[in-house]
């Protein structure tokens, strides 16, 4: 599991949520139901972390320049994303055009198996 910085995560949050939204909601629901016990929601934690890792790996592989630009912008603006809407939108567009459909097919395969 590679650690990703807060800037990287917050910049690519749209890309992550476009794929992992249901996973996140399931994780949050489990957390609400079972309290703060990490053992109870381990399945959901693993799925959330894995989904995020996969998408971040995909982004770093295909949209590296856009990601670097957006991360630089966010880090220069005191970790505020409102001033970097242009960069984040470019990153999301790059992710959508290059990797989204591939990932969706992959996830459909995973659900089938």
């Amino acid at each position: 599991m590679e650690p990703y910085s807060r800037a990287e995560l917050i910049v690519s949050v749209d890309s992550i949520w476009s794929v992992c939204e249901r996973t996140m909601y399931a994780f949050e629901k489990c957390k609400i139901d079972n309290g703060n016990d990490p053992q109870a929601c381990l399945k959901y934690s693993v799925s959330v972390a894995g989904c995020t890792q996969k998408i971040m790996r995909e982004i770093t592989k295909t949209c590296k320049p856009e990601l670097d630009k957006a991360v630089h912008c966010v880090e220069e603006n005191n970790m505020r994303t409102l001033k970097c809407t242009k960069e984040t939108e470019e990153l999301f567009k790059c992710f959508k055009t290059n990797s989204f459909e591939k990932l969706v097919l992959l996830i459909i395969d995973l659900y089938k198996n």
Binding site: M1, P3, F27, K31, S45, V48
Partner: peptide, 11 residues
């Protein structure tokens, strides 16, 4: 991004 951080921290 909080659920991501929470999940990784739990693991």
């Amino acid at each position: 991004i909080l659920p991501i951080i929470q999940a990784e921290n739990d693991i």
